[in-house]
Design a protein around this nucleic acid. Structure first.
Length: 534
RNA sequence: GGUGCUAUCGUCUAGUGGCCUAGGACAACGGCCUCUCACGCCGUAAACCCCGGUUCGACUCCGGGUAGCACUACCA
């Protein structure tokens, strides 16, 4: 097939974009880019009752944040929605006129009919007859144009009666759908019901009709979507046939589902709340029900980590490679290497990916990201930013230096504060556990003596000279000599000293801490600890 | 209930009839490093759903079970 590859991501604006939807969008995007094709974004808002304000913006902004580019349809540009392409409009609610025409075509070719049964009547029927289905076996007992005749049907419609248009499905026909991931899938048409294609109540088609008409009109070549659509794929094939579009029918690929980490079943928003991780890319404030959902972005995830993690949930290139840039994914992605079975969402692995990407970032880059958090925690630092060296403030340079000391122990930028807070703020309380284990009876005396030793060191000798290791500095030599002289234990002294500076038994090497703190602050903290802990 | 899809370590997965005493990664556990906590490094434990068949030989092919999931709306 020489047809140009055109794929689409077609979400419904019914809330935040689920992480499974993000993966579907990603796979579509990778496939499009790899084949030099187009990635379209269409909004499927044919259910007016489920529309959530802000959802559209949310979806587009999320894809933009993740670097999933849109070539045609709706996309996010400079904080607002723009429409590109000449197959629009790209919102189904704005395509009513188009659907009317195709609904009429189906009626005229006897592939569809008018039905007047109300939802209440249908409910009653279902209650009355077990496994009731509106199909070849039952349609002639219902209230529709097949029974009452077209003239009568038109009369009732003209009189303002509400109706739907149903697809007439011929029974007992085997329909085979070729799926790029699963191979041929065959079902018998008798299990399908006469699907509602159009509802006059809101003058909108249902998903099935709108989807087929739009994919056809937008010249979509490949439909890559979630596995939940597999059962209705044969219906879609039947629609393509009814319209006479079989020669341009897109190819199908149904992706495995993202499952909850524990137990069984589809990953849901509730699982995230319950297990404490986001299931949405961005934080979402639902204007309809007032709920707030956490997002990966706000939790400190890098978009490239989310992409990498998601890409591997259901796809694998058969090598041991785990880290992939978007470009590598575009190059290597392939539908026939997508798994058939659902993947449980392993949040821990996601954290690991973020850790990897965080280590790849420069200290300066991380400092820029961390600065707002730091200034929020320590507002007094804000004034210091005024002093600039080049474009970097003195404080920011220090922040970058400190980040370099602690970044290998964090997974997320916000965690930098927990690891580095003592560099910016002297401890006001001391960790109980550390105290119990490391602050001994002799510690106050040791620290008092150490204070004298440290006071004797020249200001110029305090900081470790460039190019030397912390152990080669004057501080280390002097302190170690003093320890040896008095036959103290290195551990007992250093740990007590650490508690004075940090407030707990944690953190990087002690001399790198004294380097950053400087002599005055170091001494001040030891004195403060002595007066607090005595 | 009906229809369809799926089935390898706890999890993501490699494996396309002999390279498999089943490989990698996350998590777990142990060790090393060390003034602490981490990181890192090294190592340990951990799986072919069951039953038949085909074959000289099945994780791989076939059949049947079983289990899980999805769908079964005037929702997508």
């Amino acid at each position: 097939m020489a047809r140009k590859v055109r794929v689409r991501f077609a979400p419904s604006p019914t809330g935040a974009l689920h992480i499974g939807g993000v993966r579907t969008a990603l796979y579509n995007y990778l496939f499009a880019r790899q084949h030099g094709g187009d990635m379209l974004l269409r909004i499927e808002d044919t259910d007016s009752t489920r529309f959530v304000p802000g959802a559209e913006e949310y979806i587009l902004e999320a894809l933009d944040w993740l670097g999933i580019g849109i070539d045609e349809g709706l996309r996010w540009e400079n904080g607002k929605i723009v429409q590109v392409g000449n197959h629009g409009p790209y919102r189904q609610s704005e395509r009513r006129e188009i659907y009317h025409q195709y609904v009429d075509q189906l009626i005229q070719s006897n592939h569809a009919y008018y039905a007047f049964d109300t939802p209440e009547q249908l409910d009653a029927k279902r209650a009355e007859i077990p496994n009731f289905q509106y199909d070849a076996r039952t349609r002639m007992q219902m209230d529709n144009s097949l029974v009452i005749g077209m003239d009568e049907a038109k009369r009732r419609i003209a009189a303002g009666e509400k109706y739907v248009v149903r697809f007439l499905i011929e029974p007992d026909e085997n329909i085979t759908v070729h799926d790029l991931i699963r191979g041929d899938v065959t079902i018998n048409s008798s299990i399908l019901d006469d699907k509602v294609l159009y509802k006059s109540a809101d003058d909108l088609p249902t998903y099935h009709l709108a989807n087929i008409v739009d994919d056809h009109l937008m010249e979509v070549s490949h439909v890559i979507r979630g596995e939940e659509w597999l059962p209705s794929a044969p219906l879609h094939v039947l629609l393509y046939r009814a319209f006479g579009w079989t020669d341009t029918m897109p190819e199908f690929a149904h992706l495995p589902l993202l499952l909850k980490p524990d137990g069984n079943g589809k990953l849901s928003k509730r699982d995230g709340d319950r297990l404490g991780f986001p299931v949405f890319p961005l934080e979402f404030h639902n204007q309809k029900d007032g709920s707030v959902s956490s997002g990966y972005r706000e939790s400190g995830y890098f978009p490239e980590a989310v992409i990498n993690f998601l890409a591997l949930l259901g796809w694998h290139n058969s090598t041991d490679q785990e880290m992939f840039t978007m470009d590598e994914l575009i190059q290597q992605f392939s539908l026939d290497r997508v798994s058939k079975s659902g993947a449980k969402f392993d949040y821990e692995k996601g954290k690991w990916f973020n850790h990897q990407y965080l280590q790849l970032k420069s200290n300066e880059e991380l400092a820029t990201l961390f600065m707002p958090i730091l200034l929020d925690k320590v507002p007094s630092l804000a004034g210091n930013s005024a002093v600039l060296i080049g474009s970097t403030s003195v404080v920011e340079a220090t922040v970058a230096q400190v980040i370099g000391l602690v970044k290998d122990r964090v997974n997320f930028v916000p965690e930098l504060w927990e690891q580095a807070n003592f560099f910016f703020v002297a401890p006001t309380e001391y960790d109980e556990k550390s105290l119990a284990k490391r602050w001994k009876e002799d510690s106050p005396r040791h620290m008092t003596e150490l204070l004298e030793v440290l006071e004797g060191i020249n200001d110029n000798d305090w900081t470790t000279p460039a190019g030397k290791t912390a152990e080669e500095g004057v501080l280390n030599t002097v302190v170690m000599n003093w320890i040896a002289e008095h036959e103290y234990g290195v551990g007992i002294i250093m740990n007590a000293f650490r508690i004075c500076l940090v407030g707990a038994a944690r953190g990087p090497h002690i001399w790198t801490i004294t380097d950053v703190l400087g002599k005055a602050e170091t001494l001040r903290r030891v004195r403060q600890a002595l007066s607090t802990l005595n």
